[in-house]
């Protein structure tokens, strides 16, 4: 096992002789992240991992709402002003994608819903103040945002957008593209559970699909299913990431932007799609859709695994 460097900018790289792959671990986007690279030599693995991690950090940096210079912060700081902010092409395409998600989800996926954080504090054991919750819900509404494909203006002060709903998934896809551009045919990008597979894993002389375990939503060390991934992506949205429990009722961090209240119907939804950003968005929308989630996912033509509030499993395999 060779470890090159463990500083935050350099990948911590190790060779797994059994799986015959290089593993690079790093922390980004408030998550533990991992790259698995099926390559023979360390130099290639190092160069590819560095390039992919650079890309993840670039996206984290560009779209962080904590950094005042980020484009997202600039847009939010400008909320309520009459002049619109011009955005670069990449941001424009992501805003267009957000617009498509809003329309396709009948307004359930809304990048202006982050303001609900002001009412919900998942570190405390209190439900939000009803008045404050109503005020924040009133701030939500992508349909009120002035977005013309090149310039954006948020109509009221205190309104804000964030890319938390798909930023990490987007980074996983872009990192995978970087690896492919570096000539890597078989690799796995895992950014805190948002996964994009390139090719397959090596299994002796052959190649087999990557195998991803789906966490059981109620048993943190048990897996519920195994999903083979080859050139596809997987994302899971669950009610177990951040939640508070009051009087036996679980209040999770996936909040309906129309009511401000957490979703109840599903414990978790996992989606397999060609790209991670679609898988992540679809899993979140499915959580928000409740009962109609399965028909929605079937219409989208993706494979899925959903666990309802009673722990029953539904999947795209009938």
């Amino acid at each position: 096992m060779a470890t090159l460097n463990t500083s935050t900018t350099q990948p911590a790289l190790s060779f797994d002789p059994i799986a015959h792959l290089w593993r690079a671990t790093f922390a980004a986007m408030a998550c533990q992240c991992e790259l698995l690279l099926v390559v023979d030599d360390e130099a290639t693995a190092h160069a590819a991992a560095t390039s992919a991690i650079d890309e993840v950090r670039r996206i984290e940096h560009k779209y962080s709402r904590y950094r005042p210079e980020s484009i997202v912060s600039q847009i939010n700081q400008n909320a309520g002003q009459s002049d619109a902010i011009a955005v670069d092409d990449e941001t424009a395409q992501l805003l267009n994608f957000a617009d498509q998600l809003f329309t396709a989800s009948d307004g359930l996926f809304d990048i202006t819903s982050g303001v609900l954080r002001r009412a919900w504090d998942f570190k405390s054991h209190r439900l939000p103040d009803a008045h404050l919750l109503a005020e924040t819900v009133a701030l939500i509404g992508w349909d009120r945002v002035d977005w013309n494909g090149a310039r954006i203006a948020l109509p009221t002060p205190d309104m804000e957008i964030d890319f938390g709903g798909f930023g990490k998934e987007y980074a996983a896809d872009r990192a995978a593209t970087r690896l492919a551009e570096m000539g890597i045919a078989n690799a796995l990008v895992n950014l805190g559970g948002d996964v994009r597979a390139l090719g397959n894993r090596s299994a002796g002389a052959d190649f087999e699909p990557w195998q991803l375990g789906i966490r059981h939503p109620r048993l943190s060390d048990a897996t519920l299913a195994s999903i083979p991934l080859a050139n596809t992506a997987l994302a899971t949205s669950g009610d177990y990431e951040r939640f508070i429990e009051i009087g036996g009722q679980r209040y999770c961090h996936i909040l309906n932007p129309k009511t401000g209240w957490p979703v109840q119907h599903w414990q978790s939804v996992s989606v397999v799609s060609p790209v991670c950003i679609a898988a992540g968005a679809l899993a979140t929308i499915a959580m928000l859709k409740g009962e109609t989630a399965l028909s929605f996912l079937r219409e989208e033509g993706v494979a899925f695994l959903a666990v309802d509030a009673e722990g029953r499993v539904a999947s795209s395999e009938r």
């Binding site: 092409d89 896809d173 060609p274 790209v275 929308i285 989208e300």
Partner: peptide
Amino acid sequence: GSITLAALALPGV
């Protein structure tokens, strides 16, 4: 569906 197709069209994805 439309969401997956829209995602596939994103730059560098």
